[in-house]
């Protein structure tokens, strides 16, 4: 079956997502229920439901334009910043609906951090980049508090040894991989519960990518991580569970090994085996 034939599949048909349970079930951190996303009149994401387990890495994969990044941005309401974008459905985190309009996005985004596709350090010093979040949220009581947060965050991100002597230098002067780890440290500094990563390695070279992947695996111990990636090998390397998106539908989700080794859906299989993508 070719990609064009797939593209012609009628959108009205309600696909049922194929779900494969974890052999050792974990506590659910976020539960998305029947989420739809619209750009203006166009529906970009159709009735997606998925449970994200706590303290694990969930990878969203799929061909470009499949809606995986759009879905990721629902978790910290970043879609709010896009004109004409509308999200319908429930996203429960610890029993609260993230998508409720009464939800304070400021607080939400402190709880759900995000790392972007391209490293985007602020044009400030390394120190100020990390201290930015704690400062705006007022979580540091003193200068020494803040110093501790900065050191801790950089350590967690595995950057402390590399930058501890040049904390006052601009963050934009670091290498691409270092910048991305700086952005991860920046997200950690406000001690979020969930970290969203939108193709965090797509702008990095292989060595920097390996370094970031290693970091993701370490962070899994303490954070719930959702990562969007177009690299299947990366998903295999870092994630516990994988969800495959296709043309705005969540096709299949389950433990990473089972998705890659024994895909149930033909489309998933075609994608994974490289028929298209």
């Amino acid at each position: 079956m070719s990609a064009t034939a797939l593209a012609e599949a009628p959108h009205e048909t309600r696909y049922e997502t194929i779900r494969i349970a974890d052999p050792s079930p974990r506590e659910t951190k976020i539960s998305a229920q029947d989420v739809h996303v619209y750009y203006g009149a166009k529906e970009a994401l159709h009735h997606v439901s998925i449970d994200i387990p706590a303290k694990s890495v969930t990878a969203f994969i799929g061909p470009s334009g499949c809606g995986k990044s759009t879905f990721l941005r629902c978790f910290n309401r970043m879609n709010d910043t896009i004109d004409g974008c509308r999200v319908v459905g429930r996203l429960d985190m610890d029993g609260e609906d993230l998508n409720d309009h009464r939800q304070d996005v400021v607080l939400l985004r402190a709880r759900v951090g995000m790392v972007f596709q391209k490293p985007n350090p602020f044009p400030k010093s390394i120190y100020d980049n990390i201290a930015y979040g704690p400062r705006i949220h007022g979580v540091a009581r003193s200068k020494s508090d803040l110093d501790a947060i900065v050191e801790h965050s950089l350590t967690r991100a595995g950057l402390w040894q590399e930058v501890k002597d040049r904390l006052q230098e601009p963050g934009t002067g670091l290498s691409g991989g270092q910048q991305q780890r700086l952005c991860i440290a920046r997200a950690i500094a406000v001690s979020p519960e969930v970290i969203l990563m939108d193709e965090p390695c797509s702008a990095l070279d292989p060595i920097a990518t390996a370094r970031v992947e290693e970091l993701i695996r370490e962070l899994r111990e303490n954070y719930t991580i959702i990562i969007v990636t177009h690299s299947m090998s990366q998903a295999q390397r870092v994630s516990d569970r994988t969800a495959y998106f296709h043309l705005g539908y969540l096709v299949e989700e389950g433990p990473t090994e089972s998705i890659f080794n024994d895909p149930q859906e033909k489309r998933t299989k075609d994608y994974i085996t490289g028929v298209f993508g």
Partner: peptide
């Protein structure tokens, strides 16, 4: 509600 993040001990402090 309990915060599960271990970092709160450092950043919250008190």
């Amino acid at each position: 509600m309990a915060i599960t993040s271990p970092d709160s001990a450092i950043s919250g402090g008190f």
